[in-house]
Design a protein around this nucleic acid. Sequence first.
DNA 1: CTTTCTGCAAACGATTTGCAGCAGC
DNA 2: GCTGCTGCAAATCGTTTGCAGAAAG
Lengths: 143, 143
Amino acid sequence: MGDVLETAATRLRGVGQRLTPNRTTLLETLAAAPGPLTIPAIRELHPELAQSSAYRNLVVLEEAGIVHRVAGTDEFVRWELAEDLAGHHHHLICASCGRVDDVPASAGLERSVAAAAAAITRATGFTTQHHRIDLVGVCRDCA
Amino acid sequence: MGDVLETAATRLRGVGQRLTPNRTTLLETLAAAPGPLTIPAIRELHPELAQSSAYRNLVVLEEAGIVHRVAGTDEFVRWELAEDLAGHHHHLICASCGRVDDVPASAGLERSVAAAAAAITRATGFTTQHHRIDLVGVCRDCA
DNA sequence: CTTTCTGCAAACGATTTGCAGCAGC
DNA sequence: GCTGCTGCAAATCGTTTGCAGAAAG
């Protein structure tokens, strides 16, 4: 975590920005979460954070390459730490309650995806930079 | 295609609705597309379709299990035929132009995903119903 | 002091909805 | 007729932005 903040400070400075208290709060919140969070969820944990600051700072953090925007199933955008800070992972999406949790990527699966991506590049000319795997189902709590 | 319309008519009737000209247009457009479409894209192909009718009818078709809503990278929701009508596939998402194309799923990859899903159920209690794999990169045209 | 950051309130834009008229049964 | 469908225009709501003051360097 201290690591995340330090990296964040460096990357922000590289874009001419500072690591402010609001931004620290955002990063600590995302780092502690089991999966990507919506802005309402973040603000529920930290009501003192003004809505506009949350939105604005997440955009700044995104431009600095520290956080990442994730599209879920519902109408809310979700945010998580960038993969080089949080590690590569996939998402478990509960179709019943909308909750999104991280799962570490398995080596076998990664290998299969890489092989498929290579075949696609050969066949279509599409170059894969990264991938996104979501398992949609029912979480333990909703079962 | 005639098949799709016939199935659609049946499923709509099951929900107390009809297969109208507007709905037929929507389904034909989605069936002919190489990937999921945004509503603006659909309306560009068929400007005679009123915006509200497009939104409203896609919701009806979704409730009837004929089409499916997919979240992309940009702010627009995209629509495609339900998987039992279009076949299981994954998505190539161009990070540069936002375009989304379908690719057939490879058997090896599907096997790996199934194995990973089984391991996750054992470890976390999450039950996977289906999955979503997106390869994000640069399409041939943007390269 | 200059520049960035903040929070309020207003603006934006994709999507949804109310309503009056039209079409299918 | 009754019920559902359509299109217009207005409302909704997550998100973005303008602006004036506060904080950092």
